[in-house]
């Protein structure tokens, strides 16, 4: 079947090279050359991240409205959260984000072992984040703070606290889901890096994973003050 290459970045790769990339499955047929493929993948990731922002945006908007309705209740509820764990989690995520950034740098410098370890570290930190969240959830369970399951709080702010914890679970649950996906993907990548699947000429996937991980991190940077800090000011 005849194919024509509508070469755009002809200077970047010769026709032969392109054909060999195609044969090895490294260049999909709709792309003319690796540069185009990489740019497309990156833009795709950015668009995806923008949808993610809107997903979380709905939750943050709901949170804002409810907090305006019940400022005191939300402050009271916020004091029920575990500030210490929350802060550690924040530190853990931030560290993991810098690890993955270093990992991508390492692969660009062809330091594959280092890169593999950095990615593995990222995944491990992500996993520990999840474990810590598990502890938090468990603690809230014992304190009867989980709406729909065992919520049992009295007092003047009972309903606002219930609302707060609803949103708390929606937000942190949805965020943890993202962390979980990230951990799995990044762990897989670490494995592939250690097997030499990536190198200085082939790291787009890693870059995209890092982008995603940074987003997960950034979302948390908003979650942390909203959930853990609001009630503790002053």
């Amino acid at each position: 079947m005849p194919t024509i290459s509508l070469l755009r970045n002809a200077m970047n790769a010769s026709v032969n090279e392109i054909e060999s990339l195609r044969e090895r499955g490294l260049l999909e047929k709709q792309f003319d050359d690796p540069v185009q493929q990489r740019e497309a993948a990156t833009l795709g990731m950015w668009v995806f991240l923008s949808t993610e922002i809107l997903f979380f945006g709905v939750l943050f908007a709901s949170y804002t409205i409810c907090r305006i309705l019940y400022p005191h209740g939300f402050a009271a509820a916020s004091r029920e959260t575990d500030m210490l764990l929350g802060s550690i989690e924040t530190a853990v995520l931030l560290t993991s984000s810098s690890l993955i950034a270093l990992g991508v740098r390492a692969i660009k410098l062809d330091q594959r072992t280092l890169a593999a370890w950095l990615l593995a570290g990222t995944a491990a930190l992500g996993a520990s984040f999840l474990v810590m969240h598990g502890f938090e959830y468990h603690k809230e369970w014992t304190e009867h703070l989980i709406p729909g399951l065992n919520f049992a709080r009295g007092g003047p702010y009972a309903r606002a606290i219930e609302l707060f914890f609803c949103l708390y679970y929606f937000i942190t649950g949805f965020h943890s889901l993202h962390v979980l996906v990230g951990v799995c993907v990044i762990a897989g990548l670490a494995l592939r890096v250690s097997r030499g699947a990536f190198g200085p000429e082939r790291f787009t996937t890693l870059e995209l994973a890092a982008l995603y991980w940074h987003l997960v991190d950034i979302v948390w940077i908003f979650v942390y003050p909203l959930i853990y800090l609001v009630g503790r000011a002053g």
Binding site: S50, T51, G57, V58
Partner: peptide, 9 residues
């Protein structure tokens, strides 16, 4: 891309 996530959520 920007509106549908809001509906989904």
């Amino acid at each position: 891309v920007l509106a549908t996530p809001v509906l989904a959520m």
